[in-house]
Amino acid sequence: MLLIKCPWCGDRDEHEFSYGGEAHIVRPRDPEKLTDDQWADYLFMRKNPKGAHLERWVHAHGCRRWFNVERDTVTHAITAVYKMNEKPPRSSKT
């Protein structure tokens, strides 16, 4: 079970959190202007990398805040935790 450091509450067990998928996917400003392919890309296409992954988590059974995590999808090592309005760590490729 992962140990996730909520930016507010500190280290908590994984079961207190819910996973929110890949981070930094911005909802298009004007969806009506997008082609079907562009919309499908926003809707469905995700990176699924082997290695560092920027992803969203929410502290569902704690302070209910969303935040971002950089997690290695192979080792599960969490290398960074940052708030929604913060930039990803420089080391990671978005």
């Binding site: 819910s18 929110g20 929410v58 969303w66 309005n85």
Partner: peptide
């Protein structure tokens, strides 16, 4: 409720 919070916190702060 979680859905509403998700949009407010992550997309439309």
């Amino acid at each position: 409720l979680a859905w509403l919070e998700e949009w407010l916190q992550t997309e439309w702060p």
